[in-house]
Simulated assay, not measured.
Amino acid sequence: MVTNFPFIIQADFLLASSREAILFDSPWNKGILECIPSAFMNAFVALVKSRTDAPAMTIPSMFHYLPVSPSMIPLLEPVRSGIKDKVLVEDIVPCESHTPQKMFCKPCEVAWLKPAFWDILVKARESGVDLKNLSTHGTYILSSHFDKSAYNSVLTFLDVKSVSHE
């Protein structure tokens, strides 16, 4: 079945006799569907955080596995919303740490900078300004590698806001 999710759900679902549809009212299938958000989060966290040697620029591409678009099957919307609920409370969003160590925060703790402001920060860093305390005001700065329109739907799904002008 086409779900419109960017990942495959592989499970032993009970099917209709024609084998063309999943029996969504089956207690067995409901149990499988309830497990998908947890299984997805375990895999997603492992994917994003386990590769400590991976360049920071590769991490945002992993976020394309999030189900940002609604499913073509309305009965699968609880799976999508369950994944979103789990992602929103996980320290999973890469942030600028201005140190060699990677830093991850909850989506509600992160905000993105306008791309033009990055030019100012790069010049400041080149001039010797210490940027380690950039995120000490309660909001962490989203990794600059997300500054592409391809990630707009991901940032919307994660409810990541822009840094306030203040």
Score class of each variant (00 low, 15 high):
39 A>Y: 11
42 N>C: 11
42 N>Q: 15
42 N>P: 00
42 N>F: 13
45 V>G: 11
45 V>C: 15
46 A>D: 13
46 A>G: 14
47 L>E: 15
48 V>A: 08
48 V>E: 09
49 K>A: 02
49 K>C: 02
50 S>W: 05
50 S>R: 12
50 S>C: 14
51 R>I: 02
52 T>D: 15
52 T>F: 11
53 D>M: 12
55 P>S: 11
58 T>N: 12
59 I>D: 01
59 I>M: 03
60 P>F: 00
61 S>C: 06
61 S>N: 08
62 M>T: 01
62 M>F: 05
63 F>C: 09
64 H>A: 04
65 Y>L: 07
65 Y>T: 03
66 L>D: 07
68 V>Q: 03
69 S>K: 13
69 S>L: 11
70 P>I: 06
71 S>R: 02
74 P>G: 03
75 L>K: 07
75 L>V: 04
75 L>Y: 01
76 L>H: 09
76 L>E: 05
76 L>P: 01
76 L>C: 09
77 E>I: 03
77 E>A: 03
77 E>P: 05
78 P>Y: 10
78 P>T: 10
79 V>S: 01
80 R>S: 08
80 R>A: 02
81 S>N: 04
81 S>G: 01
85 D>K: 04
85 D>S: 08
86 K>H: 07
86 K>I: 00
87 V>H: 03
88 L>V: 02
89 V>P: 11
90 E>S: 11
91 D>K: 12
92 I>H: 12
93 V>Y: 06
97 S>K: 09
97 S>Y: 11
98 H>V: 01
99 T>L: 10
99 T>W: 04
100 P>E: 14
101 Q>Y: 06
101 Q>E: 15
102 K>G: 08
103 M>I: 03
103 M>H: 06
104 F>Y: 15
104 F>V: 12
105 C>M: 15
105 C>F: 09
106 K>T: 07
107 P>L: 07
108 C>K: 01
109 E>R: 00
110 V>Q: 00
112 W>Y: 12
112 W>M: 10
112 W>I: 02
112 W>R: 14
112 W>V: 02
113 L>D: 13
114 K>P: 02
115 P>S: 14
115 P>Y: 01
116 A>D: 15
117 F>T: 09
117 F>A: 13
118 W>C: 05
120 I>H: 12
120 I>E: 06
120 I>S: 09
120 I>T: 14
121 L>K: 15
123 K>M: 13
123 K>S: 10
123 K>C: 11
124 A>P: 06
128 G>N: 12
128 G>T: 10
130 D>K: 11
130 D>R: 07
130 D>S: 07
130 D>T: 03
131 L>R: 03
131 L>N: 06
131 L>C: 09
132 K>C: 04
133 N>R: 11
